[in-house]
Amino acid sequence: MRDERRSACAVPDRAQLSLPVVEAAVGVAFLLAVAASFGLALPAPATAEAQLDAFADDAGTVLAGEPPRHAGDTRLGEVTRSPAAFERERGALRDRVRRILGDNLLFRVETPHGAVGFERPNGVATGRASVATAGGEVVVWVWYV
């Protein structure tokens, strides 16, 4: 009889004592999960893109203000004059843009007759600028290496 009594009382004894501890642990876990969401990193690419947009705009402005190598109103105008002119000038254009932008920036210059530069990567902050020329629109893309 005493055994029954002991066993009948022992089971509730265990459960009741640990319940607040379990509840407290669950509450603490919820609170810390909320706190962990505070630490999520905010996106920084917005500021990087503004800087890259400015670089692309500068490259376009410098190219649009340069005298042409042979004929045309500006260097960009010369490149967009005709497909043949583009083929002839594309190497010089690529070299000039690389010298303008420096070593830590990659670029792609798209003209109505073709493009020079590198392939645009996905998922990387890129800057964009466009220049209107007599032969069409030239778009300059810039991103960090």
């Binding site: 319940l19 607040p20 501890v21 407290a24 509450g27 609170l31 810390l32 909320v34 505070f38």
Partner: peptide
């Protein structure tokens, strides 16, 4: 034991709120 455990649990919760 329940009451004491409850009080301890509430203290722990308050501390966690402070940390948060």
């Amino acid at each position: 034991a329940n009451l004491a455990a409850l009080v301890v649990a509430l203290i722990v919760l308050t501390a966690t709120v402070g940390v948060t």
